[in-house]
């Protein structure tokens, strides 16, 4: 399997959350994202900083991750971003 680039990993994380009705607990997200704990933590803090996801208190216990409107917009525009990067060799 080819190594995923940064944009692909972000897309995958956001898609996992979206496919899980827009919110997911941390442990299944870490497992499904196929990243090491350290890399996952880096991506999580970056996505939180860029407001693509947000962390909230879960209804039962612990915390869960929610995809934001901006995160949904990223997924919507992902193909355009990748095509643009590829066309201009950026």
């Amino acid at each position: 399997m080819a190594k995923r680039d940064k944009l692909e990993i972000i897309r995958d994380i956001l898609r996992i959350i979206k496919d899980n009705h827009g919110h997911i607990k941390m442990t299944p997200l870490l497992r499904k994202s196929n990243l090491s704990s350290r890399r996952f933590a880096d991506y999580k803090s970056e996505l939180l900083g860029r407001k693509l996801i947000k962390e909230v208190e879960a209804k039962k216990k612990g915390k869960e991750i929610l995809i934001t409107e901006k995160g949904m917009e990223f997924l919507d525009k992902y193909r355009a971003i990748v095509n643009f990067v590829s066309e201009f060799d950026l």
Binding site: L7, R50, K70, E73, K77, I81, F84, L90
Partner: peptide, 17 residues
């Protein structure tokens, strides 16, 4: 016109472009 895709992706190549 590239402002939106840059703001979403934060991709350095788009920024320099």
């Amino acid at each position: 016109s590239t402002k939106e895709i840059y703001k979403l992706s934060n991709y350095p190549g788009i920024k320099y472009f």
